[in-house]
Amino acid sequence: MADRKQVLEGLREELIERFDRYQAHKEQKGGPLDKDTEDQSTELANDEVIEALQQEAEDELRQVLHALKRIEAGEGDACEHCGEPIGEGRLQALPYTTICLDCAERQ
């Protein structure tokens, strides 16, 4: 479980950095927009994509924090729904998961 915790902590830091980069882009901290309207259009074209990526990073970060909280409580390897152990393969593929494969398939 210590390895999984380390993986989750590393993922948490990566997601926070990614979220901050997306936020900086949205706030245009890199400088003002280009004076050329065509260039401005190009610079702003990716705003929807950046917003979606930021939301995805935020959602994943929420899952990572939840999984870390469960590990701290000694519940990290047990499925939240049925209480059965979460398979090692599933934990390796999705270290932030809190439900077993059977329960995930039922959802």
Rank of each mutant, 00 (worst) to 15 (best):
E9Y: 05
R18V: 10
E38Q: 10
D59F: 01
Q6R: 15
C79K: 00
I16K: 07
R106G: 05
L65Q: 11
V64K: 01
E38F: 05
Q28C: 05
D20L: 15
K69A: 13
Q28R: 15
D102I: 08
G87C: 05
D102C: 02
K69E: 15
A93N: 08
G74N: 06
E60K: 10
Q28A: 14
A93V: 06
L91D: 00
K35V: 14
D59W: 01
D77L: 02
D20E: 15
Q23I: 12
E48V: 00
R12V: 00
V49G: 08
E105Q: 11
G31N: 07
D3V: 11
E51V: 04
A78N: 14
Q63A: 12
K29M: 12
C79G: 02
G30D: 11
G89M: 10
A45Y: 02
Q63F: 06
P95I: 03
D59A: 08
D39F: 08
L61K: 11
C79E: 01
C79W: 00
G87Y: 05
L65D: 12
P32K: 15
A24D: 14
G74T: 09
Y96Q: 10
L101D: 08
H81R: 13
G10D: 10
E27C: 09
C103M: 05
C100Q: 06
P32V: 12
Q63N: 12
T42L: 14
G83Y: 04
G30W: 03
I86T: 09
A78E: 13
R4W: 06
D36L: 02
R106I: 02
E9H: 05
K35M: 09
Q23N: 14
E14H: 11
A67H: 02
I16G: 01
E9C: 01
H66K: 09
H81Q: 11
E84P: 07
H81V: 14
A93L: 10
C100G: 06
R70N: 10
L15V: 04
D77V: 06
I86E: 08
E84F: 02
A57S: 07
E88V: 11
E27M: 13
E14K: 12
E56D: 09
G10C: 04
C103Y: 04
L8Q: 07
A73R: 12
C82R: 11
A57K: 00
Q92K: 14
E13C: 04
N46G: 15
A73H: 08
R90I: 00
A2N: 14
T98D: 09
G89K: 11
E27A: 13
Q55W: 06
R18M: 08
L53W: 05
D20H: 15
A67C: 04
T42C: 02
